[in-house]
Structure formats: C-alpha cells, structure tokens
C-alpha cells in the first residue's frame, strides 16, 4: 500500500516548506511577532497598571451607560469577585488578548466587508474563503500560528484574529448591501458625491448589521482566546488548561467561574451597544 508513503511525503513537504518559510521570512515573522506582542503588551499595560478596583469601577460605569444600573452593579461585583478568587492578573490578560485581537480583526474586516458589499466581484472571492475559515474547527488555526511564531501571546493573537475576522466581514458586507434602493436612488437624484453616498446613506443603514458583526467577532475571539491557552498565551485559558491536565479541581472551578463572568459581561455589553446603536439609526 502506498498510504504511509503518501503521508510521509506530505509530512516532509510540509516540514520543509515551513522551514523554508521560517528561514526566508524570518524578519517578517519576527516583525509580526514583535508587532503583535507589542500591541498586546501595551493594551495589557493600560488595564493591568491601575489597581483592580479602578478597572472594575470603570467597567461598571461603562455598563451603567450602556446597559443599566443593575447590570453595572452586578458586573462591578463580579469583577471584584474575580480578584477575590485570586485570578485578577489572568482575567486582565485574557481581557487584553480579546480586546487586542478583536480590534485588529475589525481594522481589517470592516474595510474589507465594505469593499465586498460594494463590489460583487470582491464578494465572490471573499465568500468561499470565509466559508472555509468558518467550517474548520477554530482549534486548527493554532497550528500555522505556532509553526511560524512559536509559543506565546503572538500565536494566540494571530489565531484569534483569523477566527474573529469572518463574522465582521460577513455582517458588514450584508449591511452595506441591504441599503434600501429608494434611498440610493434618492441620493443619486439629489446629486450626492460618492463619499456622501457612502457616509451619509449607506453607512448609517449598515450600522446595526456592522455592530452585530462586532458583537459576534468579540464572542468568537473570546472563545478562541480561551482555547489559545494551550499555546502559552497566558490568561485564564492557560490556567484552565494547566488545571485540567493536572486535575486540579479547585483551580479549574475558579478559572471556569472567572471565564463565565467575563463572557457574560462582554456579551451583554456588546449586545446592548449594538442594540442602542440600532435605536439611534431608527
């Protein structure tokens, strides 16, 4: 049988091409590594430098503005609880990873989504790629990232970035395409320029959909960051991974509680932010 031959050959081709890539693209990947780690470190510094209660109060205040008083009090208390169970540093670094990855993903995804929404030819290219990215289990993206960037937060960021991009592109292009025809015709008839058409007519209509995309990206990123704990990203994912592997029950329960708290807070915040924007545009 030629089956083992085939898989051995495949393995050696992959290994040698990865070697070639990391030899010849060394400065590129080093640069990427430095860039990603640097961004992460600076975001982390911003939220890890102030004492824990300042961050908890800040998030509670944001929650108060966006959601309501009850949510604000609950989220503030829940974050203080993260400190009480002794997982504040991990919580903060998870938060920093999620925020960094989501922001990077949005910076790429929203312009691309707008482009795909405006030009059907771009959409035809982007759509199958997104289909493929979304069919693969997210776990897979750690492989190329770890091969090129090694262990550490940069790998986690890259993999999270890949997972967080598709929903934002999809929903942005959907939003842009959904602009009601009459309004476009109205714009044409009143002789607006291309830029005015985009910023004054298309973008406001697309806003709810874009915000929904932001929310989904954020939640996808969160799920991935937790998984990325296995490649040494730090944060709650790593403490869970360690605890599960050593069957440290107490620690894994604590970390799970902290993850659930953080998930609920981020999800509610993002959902309400999306909804309030929707109210504005109507």
């Amino acid at each position: 049988m030629s089956i083992p031959d085939f898989s051995n050959q495949f393995d050696s081709v992959v290994d040698s091409s990865l070697e070639w890539l990391s030899d010849h693209g060394e400065f590129l990947f080093n640069g990427l590594n430095v860039l990603l780690t640097g961004t992460y470190k600076s975001v982390l510094w911003c939220i890890a430098y102030p004492p824990y209660y300042v961050i908890a109060i800040a998030i509670a205040l944001i929650g108060w503005r966006v959601v309501g008083v009850r949510f604000a009090i609950l989220s503030g208390l829940a974050l203080l609880f993260c400190n009480v169970i002794g997982l504040w540093p991990e919580t903060v670094s998870t938060l920093a990873l999620v925020l960094t990855a989501t922001v990077l993903a949005l910076v790429v995804a929203i312009p691309l989504g707008v482009l795909a929404g405006l030009a059907p030819s771009v959409d035809r290219v982007v759509d199958p790629v997104l289909d493929l990215i979304q069919t693969l289990p997210p776990y897979i993206y750690l492989l190329p990232a770890i091969a090129l960037l090694g262990y550490g937060p940069a790998t986690a960021l890259l993999a999270t970035f890949i997972v967080a991009v598709p929903p934002a592109i999809r929903l942005t292009s959907l939003g842009i395409r959904m602009t009601p025809r009459e309004f476009i015709e109205l714009g044409d008839a009143s002789g607006v320029t291309g830029w005015q058409m985009f910023f004054k007519i298309r973008l406001p209509f697309a806003k709810p959909s874009i915000m929904a995309g932001v929310n989904q990206s954020l939640m996808m990123a969160f799920g991935m960051v937790v998984i990325a704990g296995i490649v040494g990203s730090g944060g709650l994912g790593e403490s869970i991974y360690g605890a599960v592997r050593t069957l440290d029950i107490a620690k894994s329960i604590n970390a799970a509680i902290a993850i659930v708290i953080l998930t609920m807070i981020l999800d509610r915040l993002a959902q309400h932010a999306a909804r309030s924007r929707m109210g504005e545009s109507q």
Binding site: D11, L136, P137, I140
Partner: peptide, 27 residues
Amino acid sequence: GAEVTRGLSRMEMGLGLRAGLAIVAVA
C-alpha cells in the same frame, strides 16, 4: 483531535496539518 494535539505538542506540523485537513474532510 488527539492527532492535532500531538502535532502541536511535538511540533510535528505535517501530522498536525494532516489531522487538521482530515477534520475538515469529516466536517
């Protein structure tokens, strides 16, 4: 999943990628 994990932890990217593609095929 175990094959992917093995590929990750032993840095055998060929194995990891093969297992990853097989997961895609199964999916």
